[in-house]
Design a protein around this nucleic acid. Structure first.
Lengths: 341, 341
DNA sequence: GAAGGGTTGAGAAACGTTTCGGAGAACCAG
DNA sequence: CTGGTTCTCCGAAACGTTTCTCAACCCTTC
């Protein structure tokens, strides 16, 4: 039985509109004495404005929605999603927005996913690393509801924030190449995701540019997971001619590769060098520390929130933004054996 | 300009109530032919129900709120909060609930925090590890809105989920004691949080029960953070008589302690043993692997969601639930030096 | 003292749903 | 044919806000 604006009005024998104006410093002024008594009675009755009712009228909710790439158990354990979500939350707080997490996208069909985008509970939506097959981004764009993607395909009507994968991959591969590696394998992520595909292509482009022939058996599919990385590494290590270095499309697969190497008594980096991508917290404290490509996931996500908020506020949509990466050299990479002695 | 129920009614020349019944399989039946045409037109018009309006009438939102212990930048980077949030999201999805993250608790006063609890956007709230000073839990309880705490103080009218800290601490301390350690220090967490306080007390109780005298200088304050753990460890290591083992109230502080030991050329576990608490993912892959006390944070949080949902659905409130811990012995603990040779 | 402007506050509409009350039609049993 | 039950479906109320319209009043100013 929460108190409403009507209760206040009744108690003071004034109209609800006056109460509303007083409470909000509303579009109209009210005399000081009335305002004070309204505030007093509001406090007495323990009045709390009902945000749902307000949303109903204003059409605003001060809440932004976040759609994960998929909804399976423990998606949010992914370090990438973790960093992205953290960045979103940080910035959302600053922008005075709450965050609504959609947890039910998988069990409903795409149509319904679209419905949650426009059901009035959020002012805008951020899609984190959507799959190519995910139609809801286009749907959201076609509904003209403010939306943004983090690491998605740039699309008309959608704010887009991504990282310069090409130069990131080039720096990682260049590092290995510079150390003398020529037998460089790649463990790719889920190819139905933008980052994975682009990184694979950039890997291939690097080989081409450096006149190294592309060998299909040196590309493993790691699905962006630790286990996937392990399996892919296992395959690579049992090849008749194994590579001397592995570039992984994210840190989790790199960790998996590292663990697989450990369990097969293959030394890292002496026997094989490993490079990751993302610079997740977990890449730092393993043994040996993982050489990786830092991408500013948090900043990228925060920028998405900022731009989304601006769009919601009626500003002009921001152009697609590409963030730069940075190579972080740690202990998991060194010269190939043949080169050394 | 989203289509509404009215548009459907107008197009078919029937009343909105009939449309609503048809759409919802509502409390009343409608003839099959009408239902079908309603569904058809709804599809044609791309109709999406407005959840806000529905909430308004039904008073339900199918959304549960999550309140972090505090809102500062990067709170959600905390592995504890990460695991808790992940557990909540997993279970919320299963219970067909979305998750609203409150990002704005710090800048508003407690009163306002309470207001977001009952502003109609959520059906219930989960407080994760609230501080003692946090009045909003009591406030929420007094407002009779469904709420739960994870690792909070048990309180009337609040569902409570926590872990058996006493036995967890006893198993960790017992492990060190069994290895021969008698000089056991403790790095405590934020003492304005339930878990930290109880673990400190359990540490003291263990010493008492084993007739080891309590030494104040062997208790460091680590604030539950890596940096705090580092600083506390630095102090312990510069003591005239340093301890041979350190029991930390969480894994992050244990990692901090580990790193500090590394940087001072103090070997772990040969020179000093370290035990953590939580079994966060980060504790596994460091060198040496961290002995720790596993607490099922995810399950605990999931249970909170389940119980909260049941309460929202009008079931009887579940009794406070205490989860058991499990000692995970890895490589960061061994016998003290004096004992060995 | 009348015209005009500004201030004040009451009343009501609107947002999009759900669901109740009840009117009319159809059907059945007596 | 009558009385009761069941089926249809319309109209309207309700949820709690925000904000518009409009009337009443007060104060200038000519």
């Amino acid at each position: 039985m929460a108190a409403t604006i009507k209760d206040i009005a009744k108690q003071l024998n004034i109209s609800v509109s006056t109460v509303s104006y007083a409470l909000n410093g509303g579009p109209r002024s009210v005399p000081d004495d009335i305002r004070e008594s309204v505030l007093r009675v509001a406090k007495e009755l323990n009045y709390r404005p009902n945000r749902v009712a307000r949303s109903m009228v204003t059409g605003k909710s001060d809440t932004i929605g976040v759609v994960p790439p998929e909804v399976t158990d423990n998606v949010f354990l992914s370090p990438y999603l973790h960093l992205a979500l953290n960045g979103i939350i940080n910035e959302a707080g600053r922008q005075h927005q709450d965050v609504l997490l959609f947890t039910r996208c998988s069990e409903v069909d795409r149509d319904e996913l679209a419905s949650i985008l426009v059901d009035g509970r959020v002012d805008g939506v951020i899609f984190i690393a959507p799959h190519f097959s995910e139609k809801s981004v286009e749907l959201a764009a076609s509904l003209h509801s403010p939306c943004a993607t983090v690491s998605g395909v740039p699309l008309d009507g959608v704010l887009s924030f991504s990282v310069d994968n090409e130069s990131g991959v080039a720096s990682a591969m260049g590092h290995l190449y510079g150390l003398g590696h020529r037998k460089i394998a790649h463990i790719a992520g889920r190819l139905d995701m933008q980052d994975a595909l682009v990184r694979l292509q950039a890997y291939q482009a690097f080989l081409r540019n450096h006149h190294i022939s592309y060998r299909e058996e040196w590309v493993g599919m790691g699905q962006f997971t630790i286990d996937g990385g392990r399996r892919a590494m296992a395959q690579l290590l049992t090849l008749p001619e194994p590579p001397t270095a592995v570039f992984c499309a994210n840190d989790e697969m790199a960790l998996g590769a590292l663990f697989e190497a450990h369990s097969r008594q293959v030394r890292v980096p002496e026997d094989i060098s490993i490079v990751g991508f993302d610079m997740t917290p977990g890449s730092e404290n393993v043994y040996p520390g993982l050489t990786t490509v830092r991408q500013p996931i948090g900043e990228l996500s925060a920028a998405a929130v900022r731009a989304l908020k601006a769009l919601i506020d009626g500003k002009e949509p921001q152009e697609p933004t590409v963030f730069q990466t940075e190579l972080i050299i740690r202990q998991s990479t060194t010269c190939p054996k043949e080169h050394k002695s």
